[in-house]
Simulated scan of single mutants.
Amino acid sequence: MSKKRLLLLMKPFNHMGDLSRVTNPKVLSHMESRHKVHMDAVNFCQDILQRKSIEWEFLPHKSLSQPIRDVEMVITIGGDGTLLHASHFMDDSIPILGVNSDPTQVEEVEKFKDEYDARRSTGYLCAATVKNFEQVLDEILDGCKSPSALTRILISVNGQPLPHLALNDILVAHPCPASVSQFSFRIAMDDKSCSALVNCRSSGLRVCTAAGSTAAMSSAGGFPMSILSQDLQFMVREPIPHGASDSSLVHGLVKFDQSMQAIWYSKEGRIYIDGSQIFHSLQHGDAIRVSPRAPVLKIFLPQHFCLDTSRM
């Protein structure tokens, strides 16, 4: 087997820092269990890699600050958040494998549902856990498993592309969630309008990829998309009605050959990218362009996604 250089990224377990405030002994036990399970998974994956003819490097994901280069694959150990963080430093040349280090246990959630939230990590995009990590890794190294290409969102402000691509979604909103956001947008193709101008006063605008369509978008009333769809889905959040309302104007799709062009009319604003950690500040009059024509993310998907896409 030829040597392959891998980058192994681990999420830091931040939940342990507040244990002094935890008074419920069952919650405390749950948090300590999560920490142990996560660290055991990190050690397990490193032990597996040690036994392979593989050159690899270990890096805490918070230490990642520069684009990832000169590796043949990235492995993240944590959950979807760790994978999302790594994706912001990756182009379309390197595949990524997510290992869910602490999967939710259905029996545990059911047992403690009346006492506390016992959910662990969802790992929606993670193709492996401790149970099948070596099998999935061997399939990849032997060329039996290929990565899929997930659409990401390219965002430009005043003609300048932002440095981060969104794998899940973006939220364009006022920094204060209680404030009204004011903006206009339309859908365009080759810079020619193909929809009416929509003038909005609302709590913001969300745009998601297919990968992000089952997250916040779904909770807000959107619909799940096929994981390999190249379209984007948008929704105006909590629009303030003005005259006759048309739901097709505030919720719909941006096709792969289209873009969304918006103007921000509030004094302040932010574009949040895949959560709250990465954002770009906006000012009155800023022009925003959102497009699905971004470099894709090559990712090894969980088996159930592969079964679904094989039927397409």
Rank of each mutant, 00 (worst) to 15 (best):
K4A: 11
R5A: 05
L6A: 09
K11D: 00
R21G: 14
K26D: 07
K26I: 06
L28G: 10
S29I: 08
E32D: 13
H35G: 15
V42M: 07
F44P: 03
E57Y: 10
L59E: 02
H61N: 13
Q66C: 01
P67N: 04
E72P: 06
D80H: 10
T82K: 05
H85F: 06
S87I: 02
H88S: 04
D92H: 15
D92T: 14
I94W: 02
V99G: 02
S101A: 14
T104D: 06
V109M: 15
F112S: 08
Y116H: 10
R119N: 14
Y124H: 12
L125A: 07
N132D: 15
Q135P: 01
Q135V: 13
V136T: 12
L137W: 04
D138G: 01
L141G: 11
C144G: 11
S146C: 12
L150P: 01
L154C: 09
V157A: 03
V157C: 13
N158I: 08
A166F: 08
I170H: 03
C176P: 00
F183D: 11
M189P: 01
K192T: 14
L197I: 06
L205A: 10
R206I: 14
R206W: 12
T209I: 02
T209D: 10
S218T: 01
G222T: 06
M225L: 15
S226V: 09
L228M: 03
L228V: 08
Q230A: 12
F234D: 03
M235D: 00
P239A: 05
P241C: 01
D246F: 10
D246R: 14
V250H: 04
V250R: 04
H251T: 05
G252S: 12
L253E: 03
K255W: 12
W264N: 00
S266F: 08
G269V: 00
Y272D: 12
G275L: 02
G275S: 01
S276M: 01
S276Y: 09
Q277V: 07
F279T: 06
S281Y: 06
H284N: 15
G285W: 12
Q303H: 13
L307G: 05
R311Y: 06
